[in-house]
């Protein structure tokens, strides 16, 4: 999975940069700007945005404020806050995915096309729905993982259950 994401994202971001670079060279040096290039670049760009965000969810590196963590000292309360945060994320994520699905259906029905090359815009629009589905999936995965971790911690912090095993895992 790591490798797939790594190479897909590398190809997407490099393609986007290369296309823009190509346009400057064509316009400024050869004076023959390429018509329609700015239309094509939208497609890899939107996939880059959403797959990049999916990868952030997968790596658990989405931008977070974690203000409460500054005040919480014990790992246990931090883990509890994580579980609550993951639950809220999952609810909102499902709701957003529902609306992204609504939009996907709409886009599929109206079947818009790009202005001069007439490439169906759904090929870019699909990124939003697919991106949100995957983000929801990873959010759910971390929720389960953190619930398990906090149950394990509760079990361990009970004096009857002292076992010498490795430190409980934590959010990044």
């Amino acid at each position: 999975m790591e490798r797939i994401f790594k190479y897909v994202l590398m190809i997407l971001i490099s393609t986007v940069a290369a296309m823009q670079f190509f346009q400057v060279i064509m316009r400024y040096i050869f004076e023959i700007p390429v018509m329609g290039l700015e239309e094509i670049v939208v497609y890899p760009t939107l996939w880059l945005y959403f797959l990049g965000s999916v990868n952030a969810s997968r790596e658990d590196t989405q931008i977070k404020a974690n203000v409460l963590d500054v005040f919480l000292k014990s790992d246990r309360s931090r883990l509890l806050v994580r579980v609550i945060a993951d639950m809220m994320s999952l609810i909102v994520s499902c709701w957003l995915t529902y609306w992204a699905w609504d939009y996907f259906k709409y886009a599929n029905r109206v079947w818009k096309e790009s202005p001069t090359l007439y490439i169906p815009t759904i090929y870019a629009e699909a990124a939003m729905f697919i991106g949100l589905v995957l983000m929801t999936g990873y959010t759910g995965f971390y929720l389960l993982k953190n619930i398990r971790a906090s149950l394990r911690q509760a079990y361990r912090s009970n004096p009857d259950n002292i076992i010498a095993d490795p430190q409980p895992e934590q959010g990044v």
């Binding site: 004076e31 023959i32 700007p33 018509m35 329609g36 290039l37 202005p115 001069t116």
Partner: peptide
């Protein structure tokens, strides 16, 4: 397309 062709066919360098 109409404007891109219009610019090119009247001797300008149409730049998107």
């Amino acid at each position: 397309k109409t404007f891109q062709l219009l610019a090119d066919k009247t001797g300008y360098l149409g730049t998107p």
